[in-house]
Design a protein around this nucleic acid. Structure first.
Length: 300
DNA sequence: CCTTGAGCCTGTATGC
DNA sequence: TGCATACAGGCTCAAG
């Protein structure tokens, strides 16, 4: 499942393979894949044709491709436009030769004026999608980013991530610590997998009440979040099935070094106690019952 | 305002 | 064999 490390791997691939290339033709094969683009498929296709992709950027799990050329008529303070992409659970952005047969779940195809490789958005479960976004300046001295994601917090890999503001904000919340880690308006880029991994490293139960955590405990957790993400980034992203592949179709391999996620019944790498899977927010959480015992006063 | 939980979507795995 | 059910889970939106 694409979380921050996987999306960053894709971003780096896009920067290498599509930045600087002019879009000639766009084909929308499934309307749901551009459902966040309100004006519809025809507008999306027309607006992209002839534009050049100038960069590949990312915040959390979102990535966008800034475009050259004209902004929409009437725009004033805005700084430009970009193709905004979210991979959802099963989305892939593949750079493929034109003669490569279409993937079964091909949703959008971008062909370039140079006649070389094309960019394909492939997504089995269609939780992800593409849209055309306006770039805006987020606050004074803020980053330039798509208007739709201006509410998303900086991710912990961002050099401008404010550690102490995060520590204070988390401690102000009245919720469980895992829910806080998954809240993209508090910290972005962390999903179910890396949340579980970071909590295992920090020896914290998912239901630990955020307002009972000390400042040093939150700082330590943040360091473990960075540790997990950093290890995954170095490994090139995680893959659990064939659904996630990077921009060139190459599978990630960080799954070999996971400590808890997907390891129900297998021994904890620290103490040998069998890892346990349990329901959490309509999905699953994995933890070591001994290293991460239920807190005395869990958040309900 | 903040917190919570249902629903979206489709392919795979499992049980009867 | 066929059918039903559970599961994967980031995000949105409505309700509390």
């Amino acid at each position: 499942m694409p979380e921050l490390p996987e999306v960053e791997t894709v971003r780096a691939g896009l920067q290498k393979w599509v930045a600087g290339r002019r879009i000639e033709r766009v084909e929308v094969r499934h309307p749901r894949a551009i459902r966040r683009h309100a004006p519809g498929a025809e507008h999306f296709t027309a607006a992209l044709s002839g534009r050049t992709i100038v960069d590949a950027r990312r915040r959390g799990k979102y990535l966008w491709l800034p475009l050259d050329g004209p902004v929409e008529p009437g725009d004033t303070a805005e700084t430009g436009e970009a193709i905004l992409a979210h991979l959802g659970m099963s989305g892939q952005l593949l750079v493929q030769p034109p003669d490569e047969p279409d993937e079964k779940h091909l949703r959008v195809r971008l062909e370039f004026a140079d006649g070389g490789t094309e960019l394909r958005f492939v997504d089995q479960r269609t939780f992800g999608g593409l849209s055309l976004a306006r770039l805006v300046r987020a606050g004074l001295g803020g980053a330039e980013l798509p208007a739709e994601i201006a509410h998303i917090a900086r991710d912990p890999v961002d050099p401008e991530f404010d550690d102490e503001a995060f520590v204070a904000a988390l401690r102000r919340r009245r919720t469980g610590v895992k829910r806080a880690l998954l809240d993209q308006s508090l910290i972005s880029g962390v999903g179910n997998i890396y949340a579980d991994e970071a909590l295992w490293r920090a020896k914290l139960h998912w239901a630990r009440a955020t307002d009972t955590m000390t400042r040093p405990a939150v700082r330590a957790l943040l360091a473990d979040v960075r540790g997990v993400l950093g290890d995954a980034l170095r490994a090139g992203g995680t893959s659990f099935d064939a659904l996630y592949v990077n921009v060139n179709g190459e599978s990630g391999y960080f799954d070999r070094s996971l400590d808890v996620y997907g390891r129900d019944g297998e021994p904890c790498h620290r103490c040998g106690t069998p890892i346990r899977r349990e329901p959490f927010m309509n999905r699953s959480s994995y933890r070591c019952p001994r290293c991460q015992p239920r807190p005395r006063h869990p958040h309900p």
